[in-house]
Computed example of a mutant assay.
Amino acid sequence: MRQIFFDTETTGLEADKGDRIIEIGCVEMINRQLTGNNLHLYINPERASHEDALKVHGLTEAFLSDKPKFAEIVDQLLAFLAGAELVIHNAPFDIGFVNAELKRLNRGVLTDHVASVRDTLLMARDLFPGKANSLDALCRRLEVDNTKRVLHGALLDAELLADVYIRLTRGQDALLMDDHGDSSGGEGQHAVEAVDLSRFALPVVRASDAEAAAHAKLLVDLDKAAGGSCKWRVFQPAEPVA
């Protein structure tokens, strides 16, 4: 599966009132492996950023004045995104801005060009209801290093989002078995003589306090990744074993 982690920076918050895209960051992942084939674009918005937006991204009108306009990069952008699943944090915001730019050029809407869109903000709200789920909050909760994020930047934010996404979804992959784990019968199997284990006094090795605490933490992480109680809970005894 080809996924593109996608982020934009803009002159303000209202695409329908003339705010424009000034930066686009795209990070490619194929089959859950980052490829390094990324796309990073600065864009001349032909207008100044709002003061509050400038404090967030730091991209001045002077810096952007010699950058290409959206019409000059649209073909490059759409070719890079073609057929991929886009992964976006708060997708309606970024898609709304891209659609406004495409509308000016009579190029349809973004979903005409990509396979699908996945919103990690909605995923996070399902996994962590009632908690802060901004990108910064998720980086802290999932132990993703975001110390370089002094200002918002589209490429850096897309890279952080890729790391957050892997950690949000890691529970499913961690429990998958490969083809070599297939225990079904077939040609080439050898009969194994049964052994009477009652003849042996088997030692019982109990977990230390530190090991028990590490196990409990792992179960909490699996609960978060699975969006509910993980199956390992079924094997826990209701009362401690003496």
Rank of each mutant, 00 (worst) to 15 (best):
L156V: 02
D178M: 08
A207R: 10
G227K: 12
G186M: 07
T169R: 06
D145M: 06
V205Q: 04
L34K: 09
R167V: 05
A100G: 01
S183T: 08
F63W: 09
A226S: 13
E101I: 00
R167C: 03
G228K: 13
D163T: 09
L142C: 05
D119I: 00
D223W: 02
A62S: 13
R20F: 08
L176A: 10
T11D: 09
V87I: 15
G227V: 07
T60Y: 06
A162W: 01
S49A: 14
D66Y: 03
I22Y: 08
L86M: 04
G186K: 00
V109D: 14
A124W: 02
E143M: 04
A91Q: 02
I88T: 05
L160T: 05
S134G: 15
L202T: 09
G228M: 07
H89W: 03
E46Q: 01
L142V: 04
L59K: 11
D178I: 01
L122A: 13
P240T: 14
D75W: 00
A91C: 01
S208H: 06
I88V: 12
A207E: 06
D52S: 15
L64N: 05
K224F: 12
L59S: 10
L34W: 01
P240H: 11
S229V: 13
A137S: 15
I30R: 09
D173P: 00
F93W: 07
A212Q: 11
L34E: 12
L156F: 06
A191E: 13
A213T: 13
A210N: 06
V234G: 02
D196A: 07
I95W: 02
A132M: 12
P240F: 11
